[in-house]
Amino acid sequence: MSAVISERPPIAARGWPRQRIIGYSLMGAWIAIGIALVFYLAISWNPALFERYAGTYMSGLGVTLTLVVISIVLGALLAAPLTYARMSSNPILSGFAYAYVYFFRGTPLLVQTFLIYYGLGSFRPQLEAVGLWMFFREAWYCAVLAFTLNTAAYQAEIFRGAIESVPRGQWEGSASLGLHRLQTLWTVILPQAAIVALRPFGNEVILMIKGSAIVAIITVYDLMGVTRLAYSRSFDFQTYIWAALIYLSVVELLRHGIEWIERRITIHLKR
């Protein structure tokens, strides 16, 4: 028995139903906030402030992006063996990888950064003895290390989920074609896993950009750091507004870029 379902487009409500009143007033509120913001930035426009800090903001943005790119790349390199360990049948290997991932995903990034920057400072004599003190003395290196270790844990989970999302039959099919396991992984599994991993990976990059603001607390002058500096010197609230606008545009740019890539690489799946 087949039911005949006629799909009709919903009839658009006319006049002023309650939802429309609420929607228009909320949009009106957003527009008012936007205009107020532009107005505020216009009346508090301060050429001296702009001249003094525009360059600083750009270098801060550069520091933020450098930090994120370095930690994402190093994190990916670290995540590969971690993913292997996590998926291996050796209980010691997989147990270690599980504990690593659990620790770094279960504690705040800020605490991990403090643990490395301030915490390892308590081992100064030992670190000096092995010549690593130069490294751990600098807030920048500590931030890179903390962010790399943190994102490696998240990326390992993303990679594992993506690889496990490829059906077993793909492995078996390649084995019956006589492909080596590494060949299978590289030519059959990873291209399919990459499509699944792209979105969470992009989200991880965005989370890192947003999370990188905390390095300002350990005196790295990233975008947030220079903003705090500018605010503490000028007590002008627009410093924070500018930072917010820059962060928002970077994140939005990235988000749309990822969506564009996703549309491109899933073109063969569209009907």
Binding site: P10, A13, P17, Q19, R20, I22, G23, Y24, L26, M27, A29, W30, I209, K210, G211, S212, A213, I214, A216, I217, M224, T227, R228, Y240, A243, A244, Y247, L248, V251, E252, R255
Partner: peptide, 30 residues
């Protein structure tokens, strides 16, 4: 709001999400 039939209501909800998902948490706090 975001699943309503009313386009303006959806837009208002999406603006909210875009802003507060795009800002770093620390910056929102400040």
């Amino acid at each position: 709001a975001k699943q309503s039939n009313e386009a303006s209501l959806r837009l208002a909800g999406n603006v909210y999400t875009t802003i507060f998902r795009g800002l770093p948490e620390l910056l929102t706090l400040f």
